[in-house]
Amino acid sequence: MNLVLDYGNSFAKVGIFENYDLRSQYTFAHRDELKNFLQNFSADNFILSSVTHEASSILPWVDHIKTKFILTAALPLPVKSLYATPETLGVDRIAGVCGAYQKFPGTNCLVIDAGTCVTYDFLDDKGNYHGGAISPGLKMRLQAMNAFTAKLPLVDVISNPPLIGTTTETCLQSGAINGMSEEIKGIISLYQQKIVDLKAILCGGDASFFENQLKGPIFAIPELVLSGLNSILIYNVGH
């Protein structure tokens, strides 16, 4: 049994796998809850991906697990990375790409992770990871307009905001939400103009929010990063 942990900016996500099958998953908002879970869960193998927390502070929580890995730029991957600065690459991004490779081998994939930031990552049909783009996530856009202006309020995220806002609140919601939706559509279109037979894959905390707003063939796989971490774990256990 494999235990994988994706420790992101906002939440810690845990996946339990039997080989490549995701059996269960959990989300933790509080560090103490995560610690208690890890200390009391038995598994054969463990891998950690963290963008915010020092791995050395988390590994003692899984001392009882024999085989452990930390996802870093030095860890062998099932894909070939062509990224010019691998030491600066977010580990969640490479995990998402490996998830795409495991689910759609031999396919050109654009992985769109809609989380704290929106990341776009391209994997070609030969298993080469090229890179992509990073832009502000939905909540970050709303927070920025509030933080960097004197009078604009912080507004809530809503579904299907009007195109034409009739109040300052709905104008902010229209700009951030419709703007991000159109950005994603536009990026997909740009890739489709350059790449034949492209498969667009959406994941991340806001994936379900945008899934219904994006038209055309797009695969929403919220657990993609967890699946990618598991594939990296299996790859390293086998080596």
Rank of each mutant, 00 (worst) to 15 (best):
H64P: 02
G96I: 04
I47A: 05
G106E: 05
V79H: 05
I65P: 12
T116D: 08
Y83K: 09
Y101A: 09
L48D: 00
A74D: 14
N108E: 10
T88R: 14
T119N: 08
K68V: 09
V91R: 12
F46V: 03
I58W: 05
L110V: 03
L48K: 02
S81I: 00
T72A: 01
F104V: 03
K103H: 13
T88S: 14
T107V: 07
S81A: 03
C98M: 07
T116M: 07
F122S: 11
T116H: 04
L75I: 02
F104N: 06
K68M: 12
F46P: 04
K66M: 11
S49T: 07
V111G: 02
P105D: 09
K80E: 14
V111M: 02
P78K: 01
G99R: 01
L75S: 03
S56I: 06
T67C: 10
T85H: 13
T116Q: 05
V97A: 14
I70C: 14
P76T: 01
Y101T: 04
N45F: 08
G99W: 03
S57P: 07
V111H: 01
T52Q: 13
T52D: 11
G90Y: 02
P78S: 00
L75C: 07
V79G: 05
D92V: 00
I65G: 08
P76F: 00
N45T: 13
C117Q: 11
L71T: 06
S81P: 12
T85N: 15
T107I: 06
K66S: 14
L59I: 11
L89R: 00
C98G: 06
V118Y: 07
V97Q: 09
I70L: 11
A74C: 11
P60M: 14
G90H: 03
I112V: 15
V97C: 10
D63S: 15
E54D: 14
A95L: 00
H64D: 07
V62F: 01
E54S: 14
A114C: 12
S50L: 06
D121R: 03
P60E: 12
V118R: 06
A114I: 10
A73I: 08
I47L: 12
A100D: 06
F122H: 12
V62N: 05
D63Y: 07
